[in-house]
């Protein structure tokens, strides 16, 4: 087993959310990268290995579901990477679709950092 800290990718178009999550998880000892758009996240996923991705469902404003694309990409590239999707607009259909594509958790906003971190750490502990 590696002693290196787990590596987390945070994907959200809201800079404040990215900064808050980055600070929180770095404070817990994780290595954290962040992306603000679909292609930036995909470029990182193509070149680095992550233990966990926390991703907003919507990255481009009204109607976007880019998070689903990221979940599908991760499922294709690295089955060991855990994915948490966050959404303020998640319908039961989208939630079901997220799990179908390989998401490990779907969280409805608003959620506190402690709630998000609790889900994230549980997934990481499962390995």
């Amino acid at each position: 087993m590696s002693n290196r800290p787990d590596r987390i990718l945070i994907v959200d178009d809201e800079e404040l959310i990215v900064l808050t999550m980055r600070k929180y998880f770095e404070g817990l000892g994780y290595r954290v990268d962040a992306a603000h758009e679909l292609e930036e996240a995909q470029a990182l996923l193509a070149n680095r290995r992550y233990d966990l991705v926390i991703c907003d469902l919507r990255l481009t404003g009204i109607g976007g579901v880019e998070g689903l694309q990221i979940v599908a990409d991760i499922h294709q590239r690295c089955a060991n990477t855990r994915v948490v999707l966050l959404s303020a607009f998640g319908t039961p259909e989208i939630e079901r679709e997220s799990y179908n594509r390989g998401a490990d958790a779907f969280l409805h906003k608003p959620k506190s950092m402690m709630e998000i971190a609790s889900v994230a750490m549980n997934l990481l502990d499962q390995g």
Partner: peptide, 16 residues
């Protein structure tokens, strides 16, 4: 930035 690494930079550019 993430794009300091050339592989990430050009993967992003190709995706865009």
């Amino acid at each position: 930035s993430n794009f300091e690494q050339a592989d990430v930079l050009f993967e992003y550019v190709r995706l865009k």
